[in-house]
Amino acid sequence: MKRLAIVLYNLGGPDRLEAVEPFLFNLFMDKAIIDAPLPIRWLLAKFISKRRAPVAQEIYNHIGGKSPILELTNQQALALEKALGRHLKGVKVQCFICMRYWHPLSPQAVQTVKAFNPDHIIQLPLYPQYSTTTTESSFSDWDQVAQTIGLKVSSNRICCFPNDSGWLTAQSDLLKAAYEQALSEAGGKPVRVLFSAHGLPKKLVEKRGDPYPRQIELGAAQIVQTLKSQGIELTDWLVSYQSRVGRLEWIGPSTEDEIKRAGLEGNALVILPIAFVTEHSETLVELDIEYKHVATEAGVDTYVRVPAVGTHPAFIEGLADMVLLALEQPQKTCPGGGKERLCATDVAGCPVVPTTT
């Protein structure tokens, strides 16, 4: 193998205020988000995106009028290329970004990869936890476009990494610093840690068997265990979910409700965004501005938000290790190149067939 392409998937975000409405339209046109026949889905996507655009534009106004996700993902791509370059001598490694709802979208990404003419492709979602609404949707969109454009190259994919050692180490390092900061600021008040993840409609878990919440819980528990091995025992922590939209019932508890409860119970708070690898509107606006205001109103005096992992060395090295392991095991991989199924066998939405070996 002389040329290796790494495709990094993420949701994407509008690169200017005028892009907010079409970005939202692309989001709600995704069958994984609105499961309705195409004509109805198009009408719903058009209606919802037009109605929500002014509110979303105001959100992006708080962070310079655009999402920083593409620039930050580019930084991760460059860091991963350097890390893999240290391990794969004589191989031209290049990372390609493929966003689901805004540029670079699958058609552009597939064409760019095809022009690179790789000998092999590794598909690596930057969604730590597998969900039918994110990972599966990105895979499906890529497959459809690749078939249309005629990209025929040997390929395998990493489905998820909620318990990857590099991911856990990076999260634990950042949480440790935030927790110690909260302890010093709390004035003796107990400190509660919220592992906040983007929410999901409850029906997707019950009807599709989406493994996302179980993987969130698995990762949170292992981060707590990692800190315990370092002599820091978190006695008060829980998983919560943010960013609820629409009228459907979502998985819970909600991060907003838990912030209010912390105020009633006299707790300081540390918030760790456990489902996000880069900063974007859900961290920079929802957590840092909107939920911090909720915390202040609820009487939470100490509110510390853990940064996203970004290009933390342990995280990047963990991604590199997953790619290397996936190259050794070219079948469908879970997690991070391993043969063993991560999800329980009753989780129907897990894409990995249980192995008997």
Rank of each mutant, 00 (worst) to 15 (best):
F25W: 12
K203D: 04
R100H: 10
S138M: 05
G13K: 00
Q147W: 12
I259F: 11
V113A: 07
V294R: 01
N163M: 05
P118R: 11
R16T: 09
T133K: 08
V110Q: 07
D15V: 06
L17Y: 04
H198F: 02
A326S: 15
T345Y: 10
G64Q: 03
S165K: 10
Q171P: 00
K189A: 10
A83M: 03
A182V: 07
T73A: 02
K82N: 08
R208G: 01
L342C: 11
W102I: 00
E217Y: 02
A79V: 04
T283N: 03
I122G: 07
G150T: 11
A308M: 07
I40W: 08
H280Q: 10
E217L: 03
K31S: 14
K260R: 15
S165V: 09
A344S: 14
L78F: 06
A56G: 01
D164N: 11
P213H: 09
A314Y: 12
R3F: 07
S281R: 00
A178K: 06
A5I: 12
Q225F: 07
V285G: 05
A268H: 13
V285T: 06
P68Q: 11
S131A: 15
L168H: 05
E18Q: 09
V153H: 04
K46S: 11
P22M: 11
D210K: 00
T357A: 12
R192E: 13
F47G: 07
Q123N: 12
A36W: 15
P307K: 09
Q171C: 10
L342V: 13
Y303G: 04
K2F: 00
I223E: 04
R208T: 03
F161Y: 15
L238G: 14
G252I: 12
G13F: 03
V113T: 13
A109C: 15
M1H: 06
A326D: 01
A298E: 09
I251G: 12
L342N: 10
E282F: 05
S154Q: 13
V224C: 09
A53C: 05
P313I: 14
I97G: 08
L11Y: 07
D288S: 12
A83G: 01
C159Y: 13
G12C: 08
T333V: 06
S154F: 05
Q144D: 13
W142C: 02
I97F: 09
R214V: 04
G187E: 07
D119T: 12
T112M: 13
L88W: 04
L126P: 05
R157F: 03
D321I: 05
A344H: 12
F276V: 01
Q171S: 09
L264Q: 15
H103E: 13
P54A: 03
I158R: 04
D15A: 14
I33Y: 03
S137G: 06
L342P: 03
L80N: 00
A314F: 14
N156A: 02
E58F: 01
V191Y: 06
L88K: 02
T356M: 10
L4I: 11
T169F: 00
D119P: 08
A79E: 02
V270G: 06
L11M: 12
